[in-house]
Nucleic acid binder design. Structure first.
Lengths: 237, 237
DNA sequence: GTCTATATACCGATAGAC
DNA sequence: GTCTATCGGTATATAGAC
């Protein structure tokens, strides 16, 4: 009886391997990840890993596509069904945020790829990222034409969004370390606000007050400019 | 004659080693960096590297402190001299952006640490990061009390700022890859807008139009908080 | 202070028995 | 399909000659 694992005890070998690989690649990076450790966490022999998936780079490609291939369609769909420019931008921000929040491994993998300049990115992943960047560009340019958005480089918006989303969603360990050094927002270690909603507010109207909360009137069409915000304060001497 | 290197031909050994190490750590990460390669790029023998700096982890610590220790004071100073809440936030954004832009290695190193959850961060670096986060928190809470800012979790703002800044400043290789796949904003491969000014606009007023562009009223000099920055609309006498 | 040579350990990948 | 054993290559770190 060469088989020691009960075939009914969980997902198929390939699935378990990809999940374990995502964990280890996210923690250690492509170069730091050890195939032995991936095999161990998958509960499988290293030789079996090579038998099922191929070498380390093929494994990495499978991990990235596992996280990204589904998310792309959800992002495009979320943008497609929104009726206004602001709604589309809001949908884009929320969808990217949701993708990052869908797995703790996803934002870490993305941040590493940002740091390496995409050196380890396989071609299919690059094409998908280009699709999302083009989608962002389209949303922003249309909103700009309609007068809903001010002038901003679409690629910069895309990169700022990805960076902010991934940093926030990968920040739990850093938050814990900062918390031990004086940064404590609320008694718990979690954020005091929903990450997606925070990002929508940030990208749509920024931090300066004087405009209504964008979340309360999401489907406002692309009409003329909004009412000029009232500067609230005696803060200007 | 054991010495092959002319002592006058450049900076001291330690400086050259740290610079080369920053380069390699930024490109390959802590686990992926090879001590041999650092020594080679520093134009020094590997044994000499150990003689001067100690082991790989001490070397990494020296690299991080080299980039961060000076930047912290500049950030705190830039915030300190700003006369208003909005001006302080603007100064903070610009100072963090300037730090990331000061060296191509800095944003890559920061993104990697975000991805690892600060696992490789030495204690002095962590304390410095906590200082900046606390500074951000103070700026936002004061602005909130004065009515200048809307409600937002200060730690989320800090992490979003760091993520966006580092992603934008480390994005040159990714931009080139995306450019080859249909994303081309302007003929050159550079952004069509200054990164610091884009970020100020994003964090202060977001992308939705209807408010005066805060960038038009900022002083041209980088980090110049001399003039009152933002609230210069005609409606506010 | 500088360099060569090497100890020690580990990793990716495969061969081959079962 | 599964596992053990191992090869070949390479990494960190140090010993020791000069």
């Amino acid at each position: 009886m060469p088989k020691k694992r009960d075939p009914d005890e969980g997902p198929a070998a390939r699935e378990r391997i990809v999940e374990a690989a995502a964990e280890v690649f996210a923690e250690k990076g492509f170069g730091g990840a050890r195939v032995d450790e991936i095999a161990r966490r998958a509960g499988i022999n290293k030789a079996m890993l090579y038998y099922h998936l191929g070498d380390k780079r093929v494994l990495y490609e499978a991990v990235l596509l596992h996280f990204l291939s589904g998310a792309w369609q959800e992002i495009e769909e979320a943008v497609r069904v929104s009726p206004s420019s602001e709604g589309r931008l809001q949908a884009l921000v929320k969808a990217v945020s949701a993708m990052a929040a869908s797995s703790p491994h996803c934002p870490k993998l993305m941040l590493r790829e940002l740091a390496t300049g995409g050196a380890d990115l396989p071609e299919p992943v690059l094409r998908g990222m280009a699709r999302i960047a083009l989608l962002t560009k389209g949303v922003l340019e249309e909103g700009r034409r309609r007068g809903s958005f001010r002038k901003a480089d679409p690629l910069m918006v895309h990169l700022a969004l990805v960076g902010a989303v991934m940093a926030l969603n990968a920040s739990a360990p850093i938050r814990q370390k900062l918390k031990a050094r004086g940064i404590q927002v609320v008694p718990g270690m979690d954020f005091s606000q929903d990450v997606g909603e925070f990002l929508v507010g940030l990208f749509l109207t920024g931090l300066v007050s004087g405009r209504g909360d964008p979340l309360r009137k999401t489907t406002r069409a692309s009409g003329g400019p909004k009412r000029r915000p009232v500067s609230t304060r005696g803060a200007v001497p």
